Amino acid sequence: MPTMNDSENLQQVFSKFSEDFNTLVSFHNNLLSSKGVDDQYKELLFETLFFRLFRLYENTIGDFFIQYSLMASKHPDQYTCYISPKDEVHAQKLLAGGLVQSDDTVRLDWAKPNQVKTKAEIFFSTENPIYIELGANSNSDIIKSAEVIRNYIAHNSPESRKRFTRVASSFIPSASPDSILSAGVFLMTTPKIGCSRNKEIFMFFANSIYNFFDDIKTFFDEQSEE
């Protein structure tokens, strides 16, 4: 069985996610209840909130891979892990395939669900909860859409707008491409149809990402009780 320290490090990943998530939602709720906030300013804040939400998703995935690999490699009788990292830095280098930048830093990309799922299969197994959760088309599609929105907010390039417009149109089928002016307006919208029916789009993504990690946490909570 994993020691308390091993499992605590993994639990801290979920605890930190929950704490940071609650901070974002609290800020969101305060923004909605604030009176007299300029619409353009509100749009900008919604885009900032979403950018931070996706960054939180990426950071949590990365932290999970590191802490899981450290814990699982010590307990091969209970978990499957095909690497044996010595510490967090070594785990990062192994997960990056040994590719270290010239300044000795490690750059890992956790944005694309297909790549994350492949990493989970290569380093852990198809029984790992990250692999299982991203194997669900609904989760994978939501993360892919979130990445497209994040990229549009970050770059505002013609190509990123083209991809963003496709995502936006899937949530708001009645809207013409030219009517979707900004990511902020899109995120504040509450569609009457579609997967985000009667739900503000920002909170649809926020709750989806929260449920994604909560399902993974539940997997380990149930294992620890066995």
Rank of each mutant, 00 (worst) to 15 (best):
A91S: 10
A96P: 00
M71W: 00
T60H: 10
D77F: 06
G62S: 09
F65D: 04
F64M: 12
D77S: 07
H90Q: 08
S69G: 10
P85V: 04
T80L: 06
Y82M: 04
Q92M: 14
L94M: 08
V89D: 15
T60F: 15
E88D: 14
T80D: 11
S84N: 15
K86R: 15
P85Q: 03
Y79M: 08
I83Y: 01
M71G: 03
D63A: 15
K74I: 09
D87A: 07
V89G: 13
H75P: 03
I61S: 04
T60E: 11
D77H: 11
V89K: 13
V89T: 15
L70N: 12
F64G: 10
F64T: 13
Q67F: 12
Y79C: 04
F65P: 04
P76Y: 02
P76I: 04
D63C: 14
F64P: 11
A96T: 00
H90L: 09
D77W: 05
G62F: 07
G62N: 14
I61Y: 00
F65W: 06
Q78V: 14
S69F: 09
Y82D: 02
H75E: 11
G62T: 10
F65I: 10
T60V: 13
A96H: 00
A96I: 03
E88P: 10
H90S: 12
T80E: 10
M71Q: 00
S73G: 08
E88F: 12
A96C: 02
S84E: 12
M71D: 00
S84F: 11
Y82V: 01
P76E: 05
E88R: 11
A91E: 02
K86M: 13
Q78D: 06
Q92G: 03
S84V: 14
E88S: 15
Q78N: 09
K93R: 10
K86P: 15
C81V: 01
F64Y: 14
H90D: 13
H75I: 08
Y79T: 05
S73N: 07
H75G: 05
K93G: 04
S73V: 01
T80S: 09
Y82H: 13
L94G: 07
A91C: 01
T60Q: 11
H90K: 05
I83K: 00
S84Q: 13
H90V: 07
P76C: 04
Q78Y: 05
T80F: 05
H90T: 12
M71V: 04
K74L: 07
I83F: 02
I83A: 03
Y79E: 10
Q92W: 07
K86Q: 13
V89N: 15
F65V: 04
I83L: 02
I61H: 01
S84Y: 06
K86Y: 14
I66V: 12
I61P: 01
L95K: 07
D87V: 06
